[in-house]
Design a protein around this nucleic acid. Structure first.
Lengths: 209, 209
DNA sequence: AATTGTGAACCTCTTCACAGCT
DNA sequence: AGCTGTGAAGAGGTTCACAATT
């Protein structure tokens, strides 16, 4: 049905933005939106919006636009967000703790099921009702909770080891917050988020002047 | 000297990765590295490494490679990291608190100078020695600390207002963690980091199967 | 022999412009 | 008249392949 062929990575990020606008529009009672409206709200061009949507089907009506609610539902389905996802966070440091409490995940259907750490002082404790388990029990818990998504929030030196553990346990998609390149087998989806690099992007441009 | 013309955004992110590898290599006593080495460590192609570096000059020696320490220094200078940067975080929620304690920023020369929030219960308190100030004192503190970089970690509904405040106070670069599109005047560098969208990227690909 | 630096080829993504519907 | 859907054109980024250099 959907996902006929290779589509740009950036499209997926934009779909996420579109869906956020659409749910807001729907809440406000705006039943029909145009690519123009979506574009303005999300900071892209109208042609880009139409192109992005066209990868997956024909959701609009010529001369009219798109039905907000309907398009929202389509996009959520395309993104795989028409169900709940269990997520494991590895690393109960500052970042891991913050991510485990981050409301933005829940709002989009992500459920942080458990946290893993190797610090005996942290194991057995909870972070806002989420249990912290040892690395040793990772495989077991990942299976118990049917976790397919993992977030790596450990120091760079431990990131590869953690990734290997997650994959072995059955995790299929990983976000790596450690500032290091890690490798996984081909059928695992890996994404790297480098927080310091984001600031460096800013300083690069600021230094120019 | 550097930054002759428009270079790909992605190049900047890769420079950041290269520099991290180079400092490690230098620590291990590896004085000379090839584009091959850098590529392998950072998960890109050797041609990409050479192309990225070539935007800024000729740092290598044909037949030999690059001097680790020297190339590291060049890259850090290109990224504007040959000095300390003061950063303000707006929003003392989970994310703001975590970011203010995140070691990765300090390691790269970023100094979180202060945190802003509008919750009276938080104002006046500290997060690991960093003061939390009210929104009202933002302009004053940004000037006092000579802050040029801001991190927005407030709810989506407040993000635009905060951005405007930061810009007005003299901040030149902004990272927006709120899941909403905000706009700033043209000479301000804006970067959006959408954490939930990262997970959605994973679920998109996992649903395909 | 090894490795850089780079023009050209290639590939990917975005924008344009307009036919096709309502 | 207004807006979508899309082939074609354009822009941008990556890889190739090889001359230049040590």
């Amino acid at each position: 049905m959907f996902k006929k062929f290779k589509i740009p990575d950036a499209t997926i990020g934009r779909l996420s933005m579109y869906s956020r606008y659409l749910i807001e529009a729907d809440k406000k009672g705006i039943t029909t939106v145009s690519s123009q409206h979506i574009a303005k709200a999300t900071g892209v061009t109208p042609a880009q919006v139409r192109k992005d949507l066209a990868y997956f089907g024909e959701f609009g009506t010529r001369g009219v636009g798109y039905n907000s609610r309907e398009l929202y539902n389509y996009i959520m389905k395309i993104l795989g967000l028409n169900k709940q996802w269990s997520v494991a966070i590895v690393g109960a440091g500052n970042l891991g703790r913050a991510l485990s409490q981050y409301k933005g995940f829940n709002q989009r259907g992500f459920n942080i099921s458990c946290i893993f750490d190797n610090d005996p002082k942290k194991i057995g404790k909870k972070i806002s009702n989420i249990n912290i388990y040892s690395f040793d029990s990772l495989a077991e818990k990942v299976k118990d909770f049917n976790i397919k998504l993992g977030i790596i929030a450990v120091p760079a030196s431990a990131a590869q080891e953690v990734a290997d553990k997650l994959v072995k346990a059955g995790v299929r998609g990983i976000i790596n917050f450690a500032p290091v390149n890690i490798t996984v087998e081909e059928n695992i989806i890996l994404r790297r988020v480098d927080l310091a690099a984001q600031l460096e992007y800013l300083t690069y441009y600021l230094e120019e002047i």
